[in-house]
Design a protein around this nucleic acid. Structure first.
Length: 452
RNA sequence: GCCCCGUUCGUCUAGCGGCCUAGGACGCCACCCUCUCAAGGUGGUAGCACGGGUUCAAAUCCCGUACGGGGUACCA
């Protein structure tokens, strides 16, 4: 499907970071544009000049790019249309459909005058006894009574337009045909619609997306929730997984296939099938998606992405990270991590000179294990002169266990890695070396003795 | 308070009047695999908020109730 006349936009305000909810909105706009062959425009709603900080805006661009969301036009900045906005306000003032307003003692008072005055705000005079109706692409017909609407500010006393005014004018000027945004903006729609009427523009088709909520079913908030896309990025979520997951919040394909390439999501996407009910941002499910994407990574890609996490680990020097070694056991690690930041904990015992045995492992894997002391002694003895190869090590440990009539794998693992679980042990042990291995077995043996 | 929107398993969703004894996914549980932890495989658990209509037939349409959410700023 190709319809170049369709134009939608993502219009974030420059807050300095990209919110999960905003990212979802951006994504749905982008999916829509790509699915219909339309144009996706990026516009920064920086009407409030005080917060117009370019370096903050760059962060948003970065995150969008990271997610793979590209735009066809822009970014444009609302602050650059100040003159046009001022003109519209002046016209409204001249025609009497807006008036000068001053706030005195918590009260809004009307000030006479048909021209803009520095230091005074301008309010739009909402017509009475009218109904504003619009068809929302996801919700159907929605209507408001103008009598329920209060006159609202369209021009601040500091000489800047408000979101309501700028939004109406810019959507009109930019020829936006579809305004896809969060449901929290639903109730501003009649106001914007009224203003569009005033400037003789045809309003876009609105599509209000269901909100993303937390476990308390409240709109995701910067304060209490983890909402920064940048944070997810640093925690080692893959953009493909994030996009895939986000696409399924408020929308679902009709064929029940959830994990799929974004190209397929674009093909399947249908704005008219977007849900109306709020969606809980479920980290558990995001983790599942991310695990799947990590597992499906080619070894080289995984290594490339995982190595920075290993290098930045403060427990060892960056150059202690042996890329060849990381590559050798990548497959085993890939199926065990949900995020890239979890990677170091599976490799750490290979990079550390000395390890510390976790309390839980010490207790379960050594103290409570049957004859763990004898197992360690036996393995130390056997390891001293056996051939240092994976299969041999495996058989040797097994044989020690068989001789004693107990399971020997866990005590050895705990002694060498400090943990109860981990990647298959004997391949890595070959790399760790005979000397270090035996040293750790002896240390564990000593600790076990002292703790008894 | 007022206005608006919403309500399918715990969660995300499929369903757009008969194919629904409501499907999939996450989670959870069990089993298989396995001398680790996982991954993987198999099976299971659990839902149409409630009450009225309309219809031969309703999860699907209408009305009401309850509950939830959003808005009500010189923020967006």
């Amino acid at each position: 499907m190709t319809n170049p006349d369709i134009r939608c936009r993502f219009a974030p305000s420059p807050t300095g970071y990209l919110h999960v909810g905003s990212a979802r909105t951006a994504l749905f706009n982008w999916l829509f544009a790509r699915s219909v062959g339309g144009t996706f425009v990026l516009r920064i709603e920086d009407t409030d000049g005080d917060r117009n900080r370019p370096e903050l805006i760059d962060v948003i661009f970065d995150e969008l790019r990271w997610l793979g969301i590209d735009w066809d036009e822009g970014p444009s900045f609302q602050s650059e249309s100040r003159d046009r906005h001022r003109q519209v306000v002046s016209d409204l003032l001249a025609s009497g459909n807006a008036y000068l307003s001053e706030r005195v003692d918590e009260q809004n008072t009307v000030v006479d005058g048909a021209e803009l005055v520095d230091g005074l705000a301008v309010r739009y005079r909402v017509p009475s006894d009218r109904q504003v109706v619009f068809t929302d692409a996801v919700r159907g017909d929605v209507s408001f009574e103008t009598n329920d609407l209060e006159d609202f500010v369209i021009w601040r006393s500091n000489g800047t337009p408000t979101f309501l005014l700028a939004n109406a004018v810019d959507d009109a000027d930019m020829g936006i045909t579809h305004a896809i945004r969060g449901e929290d903006l639903l109730s501003t729609t009649p106001k914007v619609q009224l203003l569009m009427e005033e400037i003789g523009a045809t309003p876009p088709i609105y599509a209000h997306l269901p909100l993303l909520v937390n476990e308390q079913r409240k709109k995701l908030s910067k304060r209490r929730d983890d909402v920064s896309i940048a944070d997810y990025r640093t925690r080692g979520y893959l953009p493909e997984a994030m996009v895939n997951y986000l696409a399924l919040l408020g929308w679902g394909p009709d064929d029940d296939i959830e994990i799929r390439p974004v190209t397929e999501i674009i093909d399947k996407f249908d704005l008219g099938r977007v849900n109306k009910a709020a969606a809980f941002f479920d980290l558990k499910k995001l983790d599942h998606f991310n695990s799947t994407y990590i597992q499906n990574l080619a070894t080289s890609d995984f290594v490339e992405q995982a190595v920075p996490y290993l290098r930045s680990d403060e427990r060892w020097a960056p150059d202690a990270v042996d890329v060849a070694l990381v590559t050798e056991f990548a497959g085993d690690v890939q199926q065990r991590v949900a995020t890239l930041s979890e990677v170091p904990q599976w490799y750490d015992w290979l990079f550390l000179d000395t390890i510390e045995i976790e309390e839980k492992a010490m207790n379960k894997g050594l103290r409570k294990a049957k004859q763990a002391d004898e197992v360690l002694d036996g393995v130390v003895a056997a390891f001293a002169d056996c051939v240092w190869e994976e299969d041999v090590l495996n058989e040797t440990v097994r044989a020690v266990g068989d001789t004693l009539g107990v399971k020997s794998a866990v005590p050895v693992r705990v002694a060498v890695t400090g943990k109860m679980g981990g990647i298959p042990l004997y391949g890595p042990l070959v790399r760790l070396g005979r000397e270090k291995t035996i040293e750790r077995l002896r240390n564990a043996r000593g600790q076990l003795e002292r703790s008894e």
